[in-house]
Amino acid sequence: MKKPFFHKRNTLIRFRIFSFGTSILALGFLLIIFRVTMPGLFLEAAAPLFNIGTSLTTDVFNVTNSFANTRALTNEKTQLLTRNNILLRENETLMARVQDLTALIGTSTPRVHGIVANVLARPPQSPYDTLLINSSASSHIIPGDYVLAQGGTPIGTIGAVYAHTAYVILFSTHNATTTAWVGTKRTPITLIGTGAGMFTARVVRQAGVSIGDRILVPGPGSVHTIGTVVRLDTEPVATMITLRIRPLVNIFSLTTVEVVPH
């Protein structure tokens, strides 16, 4: 006859209070308490994980790119280098004109020097249009300072500052409004953020806005191009048209930004 076997129960090991679900709940409460009481330290502790994530993304991109067609990559590189050289020459021509006009008129707008900061986290990791950047206590960054991408394009403002990190609220945040101008006539508009780096705006039909018109925003020292009109949504009887705007800056690939005083 087969004897029944009863597994020995060790009450210390199978102590029910340490179940997986309870552990997750305890972790969640610890997270809330840590974040509320010490937000700067919390973000500082999370920074290495963000850096690992960025490194992994770059490594995966390099690996997948190595499988791409070599000839296609070479052609693309040649085209990009050619275009880069053309843009550099155009930039030098424009700079020379600015210098001539400055010498003629006798005034110039001094360049505001900013602080370069690394981007720790960006969309689409973040469901909100915010950036997490590193900063130091000696950088004197305050909420409201302008944040520029490479090339000087304004992308947002500082929302909150901690000991070693800061949050940037982008202009494309859902329902955020920004004063801007469109086209060669500099028609004033109000940019409305729709999230994921995109904007819309509404303008009267008679304004004569067309696809390809530049969108300009005020920034530190001058006016900057922030995007271009890519689509016009019109209705037959409506007097207003909706502009769909593509930004110049790809917020999903920002690695460094510049913070300038407001």
């Binding site: 809330i32 974040r35 919390f42 999370a46 986290a121 469901p127 909100y128 929302g159 945040t173």
Partner: peptide, 11 residues
């Protein structure tokens, strides 16, 4: 996610 990415004023 909110602890990492939410800042007062964004939504």
């Amino acid at each position: 996610i909110d602890a990492l990415y939410y800042v007062h004023g964004v939504t």
